[in-house]
Design a protein around this nucleic acid. Structure first.
Lengths: 199, 199
DNA sequence: TTACTTTAATAATGTACACTTTTCAAAGTG
DNA sequence: CACTTTGAAAAGTGTACATTATTAAAGTAA
């Protein structure tokens, strides 16, 4: 009696224990769905691919560290034509995998982001509220789109030059170019390398 | 007694009776299968298509249900708006560092990228060679920009509806809208959440 | 006969749930 | 203190089954 009690004495509450959410083979919750029989084979095929895909990109959302330590999340990039029928991220169509930090940030120490305002650069694909990726280590040369503080106001414009003066060009006919003259306080912050637009 | 017997006298064998095999909406027997949640929307889409193929009923756009996923808002990068009167040193105003993967990819398992081709979506800020961030777990509702395979070709268009038909709208006057008709093979891959544009 | 009603047969459909797997804190051990 | 063992907790997984829909036969009435 005492022995048995002793052997079973490891029990008790285990709050916090339990299988983790998203621990399925696909890395997300699942659902049952009824499909026509003829779809089963190709569906199973696709599911296998999903399984492989989720296994090779384990992702942690916990990160609040600086850019440099961000986890590498390689995701598939598609291109071109695809076969009719089931939309499958089949390995056949994966051009390459992509890490957005890697793609957009060459020099983390010299890179920052700004949210764009106004419509003066629509022609360059910069819309209000877009996030601009800015590299300060790039030299602001004519033709580049730059972020600058002009008389204390932050603006994004295309850097141009006419004769001896610097011109900040808008890419929208409705907005005038700005000629930078003596006495104006202009500081260039960096060169815009990418625009992230939310649809 | 006799009355009851009389009333129940319609019983007896009914060989040959019963629902016909293959009388499902797909014209064939079905099976349940468990799939990751992010596949459900596209799967349902495909199932609808199968249904249409087997029975010549017109397209019903009501099956596009409202988006269940709450839209996430990107965090500001600078304290306050960077409007007029912006002071100088950049670093002081950076609110927090930003992980682009975190910002642009809500569900890694359900996200992929496509490189845009053509100029039909210039109005939506999508330029040739831009990289589109696509979330397949978002339900394609009217007004969203979607990636779909139309007769085997991958295209990006805005999902619209006119009367009872699905319309794939271009955002460039030079390009026509596409009306999806019976017999066309359209499969929606996902909803475009962001556009990455290289300046 | 013809049109309608009732009943039995049978498949479709969706979901509940039993069973499995994974994870982790508590208890035990040395 | 570090390690092992245990079993509770919680989610994953597949399938059984209750429900619904459809069909043909049988019955009824005009």
């Amino acid at each position: 009696m005492t022995l048995i009690t002793h052997q079973n004495a490891r029990g008790g509450a285990r709050s916090g224990a339990g299988r983790k959410k998203g621990s399925s083979v696909y890395g997300e919750t699942t659902q049952v769905i009824r499909v026509p029989e003829s779809m089963i084979p190709e569906l199973k095929n696709l599911l296998q691919q999903r399984q492989r895909q989720s296994q090779q990109t384990p992702v942690s959302f916990e990160t609040f560290r600086p850019d440099r330590d961000a986890p590498k999340t390689a995701l598939p990039l598609f291109s071109g034509k695809v076969a009719a029928g089931f939309p499958s991220p089949a390995d056949d169509y994966i051009e390459k995998t992509l890490d957005l930090n890697e793609l957009l940030v060459q020099r983390p120490a010299a890179t920052f982001f700004v949210r764009a305002e106004g419509e003066s650069m629509l022609g360059a694909g910069i819309h209000p509220n877009d996030i601009l990726v800015v590299d300060r280590s790039l030299e602001p040369v004519t033709g580049k789109i730059i972020i600058c503080a002009l008389n204390g106001e932050l603006t994004v414009k295309r850097l141009k030059s006419e004769r001896d003066v610097i011109v900040l060009g808008a890419e929208n006919p409705a907005y005038p170019d700005i000629v930078v003259q003596d006495g104006m306080d202009m500081v260039i912050w960096g060169v815009v390398t990418n625009v992230i637009h939310s649809v």
